[in-house]
């Protein structure tokens, strides 16, 4: 089995609600099962986006900060 393909959504430099809006738009076009990785330099969005993922019911795969950029991974499940 090859590694899962991850689509990167680069929203660095964008502030709340930019990263969330960007993720919503990209998830709309994604297929069920796709994994997206949102990159955000906005701290507020790093808190909001997981709450949003939980409300929608997608699968939150993880969130980690590297050098001031949050990497939030989500799988589209519906």
């Amino acid at each position: 089995m090859g590694e899962e393909t991850v689509k990167v959504v680069d929203a660095t430099g964008s502030f709340c609600p930019g990263p969330l809006m960007e993720l919503i738009a990209q998830l709309r076009d994604a297929e069920i099962g796709d994994v997206l990785e949102l990159l955000s330099s906005d701290k507020g969005s790093a808190q909001d986006v997981p709450v949003w993922i939980n409300k929608v019911g997608h699968e939150m795969l993880g969130s980690e900060e590297k050098d001031g950029v949050w990497h939030i991974r989500v799988r589209k499940v519906k």
């Binding site: 709340c16 609600p17 969330l20 909001d48 949003w52």
Partner: peptide
């Protein structure tokens, strides 16, 4: 409202 509170 689109984000997690009533105003940005």
């Amino acid at each position: 409202y689109p984000i997690g509170r009533t105003h940005s």
